[in-house]
Design a binder for these strands. Structure first.
Length: 267
DNA sequence: ATGGTTGAGCGTCAA
C-alpha cells in the first residue's frame, strides 16, 4: 500500500477552495495537510471537502490568522497531549494517526511563525516568537522516546540549506534564512527526522516552494525559497518513493504564494 | 535603502 501525503500553505482555505480540484488532479493525495486556513472551526467547509473525496477531516482554526487542517481519504484519529506552543493558543499544529498496512503512521502538520521583517529578537517580538517556537518544538521532540513511522510536514517558514534560497549570500540576514533559524531548524530535525524531499533533490540543486507575491514575474526573477518541508523518521527512508513539488501551482488563478509539496510512502 | 502584492475584513495587521 502506498500513501501520498501532500502539504500546502493554502493562504485562506475558503478563498482557495476552487483550486483544490486542480491540486487533486495533479497530485492525487491520500492525505492533504494545509496551513494558513484562516477559518474558525465553526465555519470550516467540511461538506465541500468531503465532496472532494476526503471524508476524514481534522482542523484547528481561528478567525483571520493561522489555522491548520488535515484532509484524508483514510480514517484518522487526532493525537493530543502536545503543548500549546509558546502558550499562544494560535492553531499552528495538528497531529493525527492514520491506520495503514503494517501499523499506524503518525503525521504532524506545522505552521511555524513567519517571524516578521527584522531578524533581531530584541527589536522584533515576532522573530523572538519564531525562535522560541522552534526551540520549544525541538526540545519537545528531543524529549520523546525515539519516534518511528512518523511524518512531519508543513510551512516551517525557514529555508535551511544554501540552495533552499535564490541567493544564500543575499539572504543571510533576511528572516527565513538567518543562522539562528537555519541552525534551529536543523537541530529540530536532528531530534529524529530526515529531510524527505532532499532525498530526491540533491542539496547542490536549487529547490523552492515559495515565491513572493511582490515580484512582477515570479518565474523570471525566480527569487524563491524552500519554506515548506516534509520530514520522515529514518525507519521510513526505504519506504520513500518520490517527491513532487508542484511549481505550476504558482501560476494558478488566484495562486497561493506557496506551492504544494507531496511525498509518496510505501507502507 | 526601498518597494513591491495578497488576504482578512473594514482599522490596519500579517505575511
Amino acid at each position: 500500500m502506498s500513501l501520498r501525503i501532500a502539504t500546502w500553505n493554502i493562504n485562506s482555505l475558503r478563498l482557495r477552495l476552487p483550486r483544490l480540484p486542480d491540486l487533486i488532479a495533479a497530485l492525487a493525495p491520500d492525505v492533504l495537510c494545509l496551513q494558513e486556513t484562516k477559518v474558525a472551526d465553526a465555519l470550516f467547509p467540511a461538506e465541500d471537502l468531503r465532496a472532494l473525496g476526503f471524508p476524514h477531516l481534522a482542523h484547528r482554526g481561528m478567525k483571520g490568522y493561522n489555522g491548520v487542517a488535515i484532509l484524508s481519504r483514510r480514517p484518522v484519529t487526532v493525537l493530543d497531549g502536545f503543548p500549546d506552543w509558546c502558550g499562544k493558543g494560535d492553531c499552528r499544529h495538528l497531529a493525527v494517526r492514520i491506520e495503514a498496512e503494517g501499523g499506524p503512521l503518525d503525521l504532524h502538520d506545522f505552521y511555524v511563525p513567519a517571524g516578521g521583517d527584522v531578524a533581531d529578537p530584541e527589536a522584533n517580538p515576532k522573530f523572538a516568537h519564531k525562535l522560541a517556537f522552534i526551540a520549544e518544538t525541538r526540545a519537545f521532540f528531543a524529549a520523546q522516546p525515539r519516534l518511528a513511522r512518523t511524518i512531519l510536514v508543513g510551512d516551517l517558514n525557514i529555508a535551511p540549506l544554501e540552495n533552499d534560497v535564490w541567493s544564500h549570500r543575499q539572504l543571510r540576514d533576511v528572516v527565513s534564512h538567518t543562522p539562528p533559524e537555519t541552525e534551529g531548524l536543523a537541530a529540530w530535525m536532528a531530534t529524529g527526522f530526515i529531510d524527505a524531499v532532499r532525498q530526491f533533490v540533491p542539496a547542490a540543486e536549487k529547490h523552492f516552494t515559495w515565491w513572493s507575491y511582490r515580484n512582477r514575474d515570479w518565474r523570471a526573477s525566480d527569487r524563491g525559497r524552500r519554506l515548506d518541508h516534509v520530514w520522515a523518521t529514518p525507519d521510513l527512508l526505504p519506504a520513500l518513493r518520490d517527491q513532487i513539488t508542484l511549481k505550476d501551482a504558482r501560476d494558478w488563478p488566484q495562486a497561493s504564494d506557496h506551492v504544494p509539496v507531496a511525498v509518496t510512502v510505501a507502507l
